[in-house]
Simulated scan of single mutants.
Amino acid sequence: MAAVTTPESSPQSRVYFQTPPGTEEAETPVRKQGRVTVKYDRKELRKRLILEEWIIDQLTDLYDCEEEAIPELEIDVDELLDMQDDVDRAARVKDLLVDCYKPTEDFVAELLDRIRGMQKLSTPQKK
């Protein structure tokens, strides 16, 4: 783009931009807007996001490292919510944290307390 000023400009100078010849902007393909057919409960999504951020913070403390260096593990909240009781949930989380050298009991107890009362997020269904 080239800057062009006009000689008869007011006390405040103005700058106009022009596209240089031969570089016509190609038309970008127009994307069709999709409709959201299923809405999640915003409050439940917010709770889930807060929980996931808390989990990441706790794991960085437990593993004494930055977020990028946390060992590859996935704590699936929906999987935990599908389990029968807190004993099974605690055992699953402890299995995931088997290579953590710090005590994990407080983390597990707090996690179970935080997921208590949460709803499982279902897969969106088309209407």
Rank of each mutant, 00 (worst) to 15 (best):
P21H: 10
S13K: 12
A3P: 00
D41L: 07
R46I: 10
K94V: 08
D57M: 13
A26C: 01
R92N: 09
L62H: 10
E24G: 10
Q84R: 13
Y40R: 03
P21F: 11
E67T: 09
T6A: 09
I70G: 00
D61R: 15
R35V: 01
M1N: 12
Y16T: 03
P20K: 14
Q33M: 06
I50F: 13
T28K: 13
K43R: 14
P20N: 14
T19P: 08
T6M: 07
Q84C: 01
E79W: 07
T23N: 11
E27N: 07
D88Y: 05
E25M: 13
V87W: 00
L59D: 02
P29N: 02
R89P: 11
D78K: 08
A109M: 01
R14G: 04
L111F: 05
K94G: 00
D113A: 09
E67A: 08
K43Y: 13
I55Y: 08
E53N: 15
A109E: 01
T19F: 04
E66T: 14
Y101L: 08
L51C: 12
D57P: 06
Q33D: 05
V77S: 10
T6E: 00
D86Y: 01
A109P: 05
Q58A: 15
Y63S: 01
P103Y: 10
Q125S: 07
M83D: 00
E44A: 15
V4G: 00
S122H: 07
E74Y: 13
A91V: 01
L112S: 03
G117H: 11
F17I: 02
K47M: 10
S13R: 12
D85V: 02
P20D: 11
V30G: 04
D85L: 01
E53L: 15
T5Y: 08
Y101G: 02
E8Q: 07
M1Y: 09
T123C: 06
T19L: 12
V93H: 00
S9Y: 05
Q18K: 11
D82P: 03
A2D: 08
D82Y: 04
Y40V: 04
P103A: 14
K47A: 10
Y16S: 04
E72S: 02
A26P: 02
S13H: 09
Y40G: 06
K43I: 13
D106Q: 12
E67V: 09
Q12Y: 06
E67M: 07
E72F: 00
V36G: 03
A3R: 03
T28Y: 12
E79N: 03
R89Y: 06
T19R: 13
F107V: 03
A69H: 06
R42D: 12
P11R: 14
L96F: 04
L111W: 05
T28E: 14
